[in-house]
């Protein structure tokens, strides 16, 4: 309805093991004022040397879509569970890549 709110935003990286290397994937988690009864909004936040890899769970804007978010149920669903699932999902399909200089 066009209303605006200040949301708590968790900003940071999560450790992802991809092909034997650990990468710190930058993400942002926006926690709604109805938390924990509604899911947070999650984004991948590429640095200026990275590009978003649109895929199964991430759209071209970096917004994350997961069954865990769509089927969010308090108290079974929580932020720690979300982050654990992001680590697993992103280790199979990294959502960002670094552009190499070559």
């Amino acid at each position: 309805d066009g209303s605006q709110k200040d949301l708590v935003n968790l900003d940071g990286t999560i450790p992802v093991n991809y092909r034997g290397n650990i990468y710190n994937i930058p993400i942002g988690i926006f926690i709604l004022d109805t938390h924990p009864y509604n899911p947070p909004i999650c984004y991948v936040k590429p640095t200026n040397t990275m590009q978003i890899k649109q895929g199964t769970n991430v759209d071209a804007n970096g917004k994350v879509d997961l069954p865990y978010l769509r089927d969010w149920r308090y108290p079974q669903s929580d932020l720690l569970g979300l982050i654990q699932i992001l680590v697993i999902v992103f280790s199979e399909e990294p959502p960002v890549f670094s552009r190499s200089a070559s």
Binding site: T13, P15, Y23, P46, T47, S98, R99, S100
Partner: peptide, 16 residues
């Protein structure tokens, strides 16, 4: 306070 931070990193893709 000194909060430990990690540097964002991602797999490299070579651009042809």
């Amino acid at each position: 306070t000194n909060v430990p931070t990690t540097t964002p990193s991602a797999p490299v893709v070579t651009t042809e």
